[in-house]
């Protein structure tokens, strides 16, 4: 197959990914919003809309902005198929994004290429299915598992899943990129020390942190190109 034919085949695949992705998202959204009402019908009590509005004003606005920021940042990383699946299945920062980036690096796919699109979709679909299966098995075994998983001795381990993930990823990404990583980490660390309340909004702080790192990377890239000339 020639390069031209490969590109045409990939474009056709990508276009259909958008169509299928949109349909799947619309159906999932309808089911997720409809489910509380269906449950209400069964339980004999519909949602209290005044309480819903109060709750939305208290926490919903913050999370809505966070969702929009996540969408803007991660969609280009994941490509079409990967982003539809990731936004449907959730757990982006703590699982899907590192999982997709890890897979991409392992096979050496470059960002923005058809290979990256395929790898990202395979990775997120696999990750989502594993989560669904683990949770389904866990729910079935919930009663016998409860004493083991909720053993007080194990709680610190499960409280520290996210630091363990980011520690491992930090080594992987910081090495070889110290000129980008160290200034970014110093700025972010200082910011969190000076304004401790920001730790409650770490997901928002990814945006300035990412902007600093990208800015530094572009400057260093420009310098190295100049040096090469």
């Amino acid at each position: 197959m020639s390069d031209l034919e490969k590109n045409a085949a990939f474009e056709a695949y990508n276009q259909k990914s958008h169509t299928y992705g949109r349909i799947a998202c619309i159906i999932t959204l309808a089911m997720l919003i409809g489910a509380p009402f269906l449950m209400g019908f069964y339980l004999g009590a519909m949602p209290d809309m005044a309480g819903f509005v109060r709750g939305f004003l208290a926490v919903g606005l913050v999370w809505s902005v966070s969702c929009i920021a996540e969408y803007l940042v991660y969609t280009p990383m994941l490509g079409a198929g990967g982003s539809y699946l990731a936004f449907m299945t959730g757990n982006l920062i703590n699982m899907k994004i590192p999982c997709a980036v890890n897979a991409r690096d392992m096979v050496g796919a470059k960002a923005g290429t058809p290979e990256n699109e395929i790898i990202s979709t395979l990775s997120i679909a696999t990750s989502s299915l594993v989560t669904v299966v683990v949770l389904a098995i866990g729910v079935v075994m919930l009663i016998p598992l409860q004493p083991i998983l909720q053993a007080p001795a194990l709680q610190p381990a499960f409280d520290c899943v996210v630091p363990a993930l980011f520690g491992a990823m930090a080594y992987k990404y910081y090495r070889g990129n110290l000129k980008i990583a160290l200034p970014t980490l110093i700025v972010m660390g200082t910011l969190f020390i000076l304004v401790p309340s920001l730790t409650g909004s770490t997901s928002f702080m990814i945006l300035p942190s990412g902007a600093i790192a990208i800015g530094l990377a572009l400057v260093l890239n420009k310098k190295s190109k100049k040096g090469a000339k």
Binding site: V101, M169, A170, A181, T184, M188, T199, S209
Partner: peptide, 11 residues
């Protein structure tokens, strides 16, 4: 991704 990790480690 370095920015993402730095935000969390920084926090």
């Amino acid at each position: 991704f370095i920015g993402l990790v730095s935000a969390y480690v920084g926090s």
